[in-house]
């Protein structure tokens, strides 16, 4: 019974969040993704190619400046390519010029003085995943909240729709 209630709650919360999107967005991506292979290869080599719209521009700026110590790893990939990726991130950031309603909502939930580096630490992420049991995160095929694509099957396309979620056993 509890399970039904929590799942219903999760669906309702997701529904409310997505209801804010224009109907046409349902056919495309929830978040715009950089075109071409560069972003996918350089920022999707070790982890999910996160949608730039999940964090504000100031977060990405800080991240790109500290790429040599990127969550404990040297993730630098050459000044020219880094400059190109920085421009893509700025353009498609949560507070960027192409921000949709959902992205603006994410940007608005982050205090102006903060430049969060972990998407999973942002208020929006926590709200959306509030009802996911701890045991789910520990499953081998999931392992960490950084592994979006484990459940959000089309995360690399910037799509995080509830109906495209498939939680591995």
């Amino acid at each position: 019974m509890t399970r039904h209630v929590t799942l219903a709650g999760l669906t309702l919360a997701a529904g409310l969040a997505l209801a804010a999107l224009p109907a046409a967005a349902d056919d495309g991506a929830a978040f715009p993704m950089p075109e071409g292979k560069l972003y996918l290869e350089e920022c999707g080599g070790c982890h999910t190619a996160y949608a730039p719209g999940l964090l504000p521009a100031r977060s990405w700026k800080k991240m790109m400046a500290e790429l040599e110590h990127h969550f404990g790893e040297d993730a630098t990939f050459g000044a020219e390519a880094e400059k190109a990726v920085s421009a893509l991130l700025t353009e498609l950031a949560a507070d960027g010029r192409r921000a949709n309603t959902l992205m603006r909502r994410i940007a608005g939930s982050i205090p102006a003085a903060d430049a969060p580096q972990r998407i999973s630490g942002t208020p929006f992420f926590k709200f959306m995943h509030d009802e996911v049991p701890n045991s789910f995160w520990k499953r081998t095929k999931i392992g960490t909240a950084a592994n979006c694509v484990a459940c959000h099957t089309r995360a690399n396309l910037g799509r995080y729709y509830e109906r495209e979620v498939s939680i591995p056993k």
């Binding site: 950089p34 075109e35 020219e80 421009a87 700025t90 353009e91 010029r97």
Partner: peptide
């Protein structure tokens, strides 16, 4: 302006 810059840099890199 930014999008053209980004595209040019991305193309230059892929080459």
């Amino acid at each position: 302006k930014i999008s053209i810059l980004a595209m040019t840099l991305a193309l230059a890199y892929s080459g």
